[in-house]
């Protein structure tokens, strides 16, 4: 069963024509997104500052109630 599924995908990928170029673009896109953007520019703001949900909640409350 697993072998059949594996061969199904393998043959499918090997017989692709336009698909190979598309996979290259997808690869480049995912690399930019996860290895560059996510890693260097898009860290989760709250997780990078606080270790637990309680501290995150307290910080947000503090931010939301600063109106003066």
């Amino acid at each position: 069963m697993i072998r059949t599924v594996f061969n199904f995908y393998k043959e499918g990928f090997l017989s692709m024509k336009v698909g190979k170029k598309l996979w290259l673009i997808i690869g480049i896109k995912l690399f930019i997104m996860f290895a560059i953007l996510k890693l260097f520019f898009f860290q989760d703001f709250l997780s990078s500052k606080f270790d637990n949900n309680k501290d995150k909640g307290n910080y947000v409350i503090e931010q939301l109630t600063k109106t003066k």
Binding site: I26, M33, L37, F42, D44, F45
Partner: peptide, 20 residues
Amino acid sequence: AIGVATGIILEFEFGTNWSN
């Protein structure tokens, strides 16, 4: 194929720019 995962960037922005 070109459009796939473009929406994930929106989720990145939620966590970084729109954390409150």
